[in-house]
């Protein structure tokens, strides 16, 4: 291969690579720029009706009901304005707990029941030792993960 041929080959390789990357970005961002919808957005009909999408919110305290015989679980997801019931059958991430922000992927079954095929935990940007967290809680302060951070 002559050096000129080699250059043309490599430059076209780069161009193809960049166009693949650009297509990837556009398709990924088109659908996922907003990675998830909040319960209020769903209530307002902004979320897809038929297609699968993601829903994000806080797990309502005392709403988690686990089936003792299998992995089936259902809970209520809230953004403190609207609520949506989520049904899920699978392994939950370590961070899943009441009051925790989560993102679930799935479809609407009816007006306010969401069937999830994947549940991901969304942790916050706060880091502290357990003793500090406990001291804060004892002092009556709201822990970061109990704040309603996802609410717009």
């Amino acid at each position: 291969m002559t050096p000129r041929r080699k250059r043309i080959f490599i430059v076209s390789f780069i161009l193809i690579g960049i166009s693949i990357a650009a297509t990837l970005i556009l398709t990924a961002f088109e659908e996922n720029l907003m990675y998830f919808y909040s319960p209020t957005e769903i209530a307002n009909g902004e979320a897809p009706k038929v297609r699968a999408f993601r829903i994000g919110g806080l797990v309502l305290t005392d709403s988690v009901k686990r089936n003792p015989n299998n992995l089936k679980v259902n809970f209520v997801l809230t953004d403190t304005i609207n609520e949506i019931k989520v049904i899920y059958d699978g392994i939950l991430p370590d961070l899943f707990r009441e009051g925790q922000g989560i993102v679930a992927n799935g479809k609407m079954k009816s007006d306010n029941i969401f069937v999830a095929d994947q549940v991901l935990a969304k942790h916050d940007e706060n880091y502290m030792p357990p003793e500090v967290a406990k001291a804060l809680e004892d002092a009556g302060a709201q822990l970061p993960y109990q704040e309603n951070k996802i609410v717009k």
């Binding site: 990924a28 961002f29 996922n32 720029l33 990675y35 392994i91 939950l92 991430p93 370590d94 961070l95 899943f96 994947q118 549940v119 991901l120 935990a121 969304k122 942790h123």
Partner: peptide, 11 residues
Amino acid sequence: PMWGTYWVWDA
């Protein structure tokens, strides 16, 4: 371990 997935296509 934390999110429950290795990869997501978020921004």
